[in-house]
Amino acid sequence: MALLLRKTLFFNQIRTLHKTPVKLSTPITFKSDINYKKFDEVRPEVMKSLMSSPKFTKQLPEVDTRIKEMLDYTMHGGKRSTGLSVPFGYQIMEDPKYFVEEKLHTARFLGWCLEILHANLLTIDDILDANTTRRGLTCWYLRPEVGTSATNDSMLIYLCLMEVLQINFEKEPYYVDLIKIIHDTAMYTGIGQYLEYSSSYSKEKNNLEVFNMDRFNTIVIQKGAYFFFTMPLLVSLLLVKNGKERDLTEQINICFEVGKLLQYQNDFKDVYWDKATYGKDGTDIQEGKLSWIAITALERCNEAQRSIFKEYYGSKDPEHVKQIKQLYDELQMDKMYAEFEHSFYENMKRRIYTLPTEGEIQYFLQILEVCRQRAY
């Protein structure tokens, strides 16, 4: 699967290895107050652009109100890491002699476009996972005035993204590539969502044969790694001079690996963090989710412990959930996770330092560090 994804990433372009290191005259930091501020300043421009479309200006007034409310709500909060990765990527990977401030602004604008896509995917994810909260708010589909219309809203959010891109980038030479990157990301994420949803365990289904690391990694690459890491990398390189000509084989492999780290963390936090810390109720045990914690625990179970897992995993009964958490405690999954994450993190750092340019090295080091800090 990973090989198939790599073969389709840059659309049969000519790849040449970019060996010239980018000299960074001043440090560029991914997560800084100024980056957040500059990024947030662009959001009203994106929304104004969208609402100026004839498709909205000629509608009944209630449509305008609904679209604004829907986007404001579903894009509320969050770390903005996907969107921020685009201007950060352009700024740190562009050779200073080719750097253009206007392109940095464009990168911020495109970053917000990716945040709209994120809102679309989270809206769908909350429905599928029966989540109750998202980023400290009640999930959109659970609002009394929304309900089942959230399915249509999720489509509208995606179409709003397409409208913004068409209005602002249709005449750009990279427009087709941009649309393809976003389309491919949505496609892979949708497939990943299906695979994850179809992989849940219950006592009735008795389907523990799907609980293996190969299937898990296939889902993670498509559902998360492509969206959070590969997509913003590819979008930022559309703005970098000769960015499309780089050989990205190892960079994309690193994207996939960092995507796995992100999912490992999410699986850990779902079990061990409370709502106040995590921002939502943990539901992986109740849903019988194919998770890193569950797979790894099964690998360590004796027969008696495996029987407990088969009996109670995937049940919404609070006592059954408690039984699974006690099993995880017996297996010391929290300690095992900490050791595993440390080893994984150190190995990723070693791989990143082998990348061909200083800009790429600093880009991935900071992305990796931001991901690692999410666990603490």
Rank of each mutant, 00 (worst) to 15 (best):
L24E: 06
T354Y: 13
E41N: 09
G288T: 02
L331M: 01
E311K: 14
H320S: 13
F216G: 08
N12E: 05
M348N: 05
Q91S: 12
Q323T: 06
M51T: 03
L4Y: 00
S291T: 04
Q263L: 02
F364V: 09
M93F: 10
E346K: 10
V271A: 03
L156K: 09
C160Q: 00
K7P: 05
R300D: 11
G314C: 06
G147R: 02
A2P: 04
V321Y: 04
D72A: 00
F30W: 14
L128M: 02
E358G: 14
K205N: 11
W292S: 07
C371V: 13
D270V: 02
T20K: 10
N302S: 01
K205D: 14
T57I: 08
D184M: 00
K203Q: 12
T65C: 11
H118Q: 04
Y345Q: 00
F344P: 01
G77K: 09
T151E: 15
H105M: 14
L234D: 04
K349Y: 09
Y73Q: 09
E196V: 01
F216E: 05
L365V: 15
E287N: 12
F56L: 08
N212Q: 09
I92E: 00
H320Y: 13
G136M: 00
H183C: 12
L128A: 02
A338C: 11
K280G: 06
F344Q: 01
Q166S: 11
L331W: 03
K260C: 08
Y337D: 03
T26C: 14
D40N: 10
W292K: 05
D334K: 06
G224L: 14
L104I: 12
L128E: 01
Q305V: 09
G78E: 02
L71C: 03
N207W: 04
N242T: 10
P27Q: 15
S53M: 03
R350W: 14
E101M: 15
A130L: 11
Y174A: 05
Y312F: 13
P173S: 10
M93G: 15
G89L: 02
Q323M: 09
C160V: 00
S291R: 04
I181N: 03
F88S: 00
G83Y: 05
V46F: 04
K19T: 05
V220K: 01
F340M: 05
K103V: 09
M1E: 00
N168H: 09
P27E: 13
I361P: 14
S49W: 15
F268R: 03
P96I: 04
T123K: 06
E303I: 12
L178M: 06
T16R: 02
N217W: 03
T26I: 14
H18Y: 06
L262A: 15
L122R: 05
M155C: 06
D40M: 13
F228T: 15
R80M: 11
Y272G: 03
T26N: 15
I221P: 00
Q326W: 06
F10H: 07
I324S: 00
N266H: 12
T57D: 05
A2W: 00
N206G: 12
L84N: 03
K241Q: 08
D40H: 12
D64H: 14
E287F: 07
R374V: 14
Y278N: 09
Q332A: 09
T8L: 03
N120E: 13
T132L: 10
E101G: 07
G259L: 03
R351L: 10
K55P: 10
Q286A: 10
